[in-house]
């Protein structure tokens, strides 16, 4: 029996930075602060994945299958809306959702934004520190 799932709609709103379109990876971080699994990869050209260094070390190092998790990159000022799914057991258990980002020839942000997987606060808007302006999440209909 797979544990019941809970899914959220998540909006990634980019800032008006200048440059190429951004690569953003959304990962689940376990209570120990380590990568648990990849939830979504915004970027479809694997050539640039190693630029997201920390995540790549984990994902590539653990031979994770990320087929079907990728979507198109988005540019500055744009937003992307995605759906993220978790095990219900991960809710309110110290897990976090991390957004890390990179842009060709520009800085890499290991933690651009991070949201606690906490049912009480998850709907709060969280500001990014890099190319992400803010993240919003709401439960799926």
């Amino acid at each position: 029996m797979t544990p019941p799932n809970i899914s959220y709609k998540c909006m990634i709103q980019m800032t008006n930075y200048s440059g190429e379109k951004a690569y953003v990876v959304v990962s689940l971080i376990n209570p120990e602060g380590n990568y648990e699994k990849t939830l979504y990869v915004q970027g479809d050209d694997a050539e640039w994945f190693p630029d997201l260094k920390q995540w790549w070390d984990f994902s590539n190092g653990s031979n994770e299958n990320i087929d079907g998790l990728t979507g198109a990159t988005i540019g500055n000022g744009e937003r992307n809306i995605i759906s993220l799914t978790f095990d219900e057991s991960q809710l309110d258990a110290g897990y976090k959702v991390r957004f890390e980002s990179a842009v060709e020839d520009q800085d890499y942000h290991e933690v651009d934004a991070e949201i606690k997987l906490n049912s009480a606060t998850i709907k709060n808007k969280v500001d990014g520190t890099g190319y992400i302006r803010y993240i919003r999440m709401v439960p799926n209909r």
Binding site: I82, S83, N140
Partner: peptide, 11 residues
């Protein structure tokens, strides 16, 4: 169309 179908992203 971008949509959420059964909790997953779809295009």
């Amino acid at each position: 169309v971008s949509a959420i179908i059964d909790g997953a992203n779809a295009e």
